[in-house]
Design a binder for these strands. Structure first.
Length: 335
DNA sequence: AAAGCGTGGAG
DNA sequence: TCTCCAAGCTT
């Protein structure tokens, strides 16, 4: 794997520059957080923006949280952004502005779990750590033909990964496994004919590489309904800040009523006005439910401090999560 | 410990 | 259009 990696490693902005033994821990950490459940192509421009704006722990720890949440908008899983600031502040306040170099102390920091701690310890600090992400899970379950379904198979997968992790260059080994998983040992139609591991792969020998890992059946995604309230006054629209935890927590948003099993109509508007329902709607799919949003609009005269009034023509810069950006675009299209 | 938590792209 | 998926963590 290391020989393969030396030839085929992807060129990514958070990896060590040529000649350097290890990458910058700050950049490794930031990239790892952004990459959680998120594609490289999506992360790349966000990573460039973040590192230009906040190049190190000190600047991120001092960051204005509202600006940081705005910068994260569109990436999803917003708890990552909240934990990013919390982690930077902990590093500055309790670790003298630099990461601890070992897995256990990394694991204790906000937003850093088993995978990310192992990745940082090995990639940025040269420690031997057993790094298991979704790619490694797939590669290893095929290599050893582990046929127990997930998530029960995780212990066996971790043990198998441990057995093949080298004492030195564990970080390069992990990145090699992840590159292999993303380019060759893919979920569907794996390219076994060009895989450096095929001659040792049990699943390939059995002729069924894409049968691994075995996954549990998916449950249906429920449907919910809601209403977006678009209050406009002097070319500005009313925006609110969502509560700090939970779905889209801490993000700037359009006001909504309850999200329920059936369309809630004009329940719970942000202010009293002559609300009018548009005859279009917006559908947005979250991880665990599908949301159909009705759109209510009103012209407002009097001032209200129910939130902040944002220039409609500049709505793209408000840092709205995608569901609200879609709703805003639909309101502007339909009115 | 199962459920909650986003989004965009590929097939 | 629909399903699956992407460098998981927290409670």
């Amino acid at each position: 794997m290391l020989a393969w990696y030396d030839v085929h490693a992807r060129d990514l902005p958070w990896r060590a520059p040529p000649g350097a033994p290890f990458a910058d821990p700050y950049r490794v950490w930031l990239s790892e957080i952004m990459l959680q459940q998120t594609n490289v192509a999506t992360v790349r421009p966000k990573f460039e923006h973040f590192t230009a704006r906040w190049p190190d722990f000190a600047s991120l720890a001092a960051a204005d949280e509202a600006e940081l949440m705005t910068a994260w908008a569109g990436l999803g899983y917003y708890a990552r952004a909240r934990n990013l600031v919390a982690c930077a502040r902990t590093v500055v306040e309790r670790h003298g502005g630099a990461f601890p170099g070992n897995e256990d102390e990394l694991r204790a920091l906000p937003g850093i779990g088993a995978y990310t701690a192992a990745a940082i310890a090995s990639i940025a600090f040269g420690e031997r750590a057993v790094v298991v992400d979704g790619n490694v899970e797939r590669v290893v379950s095929r290599l050893f033909a582990i046929d127990e379904p997930l998530p029960g198979a995780r212990a066996a997968i971790r043990a198998a990964t441990d057995s093949i992790t080298p004492e030195t260059r564990a970080g390069d080994f992990a990145q090699a496994m992840m590159d292999l998983g993303s380019s060759i040992c893919t979920p569907r139609n794996p390219k076994c004919l060009v895989c450096p591991l095929s001659d040792r792969c049990a699943a390939f020998a059995h002729g069924q590489p894409d049968a691994y890992p075995v996954k549990p059946a998916r449950t249906a995604r429920p449907e919910r309904f809601g209403t977006i309230f678009w209050a406009e006054r002097d070319g500005k629209v009313l925006l609110v800040r969502r509560p700090p935890r939970g779905l889209l927590g801490g993000m700037r948003a359009l006001p909504t009523g309850p999200w329920s099993e059936s369309p809630p109509g004009l329940a719970d508007p942000p202010l009293t006005a002559g609300w009018r329902m548009l005859d279009t709607s917006v559908v947005h799919v979250f991880t665990h439910f599908r949301l159909q949003l009705s759109l209510a609009v009103a012209r407002v005269r009097e001032h209200s401090n129910a939130g902040e009034w944002w220039p409609v023509g500049d709505i793209e810069s408000a840092g709205l999560p995608t569901v609200f950006a879609k709703a805003a675009a639909e309101v502007r299209r339909a009115t």
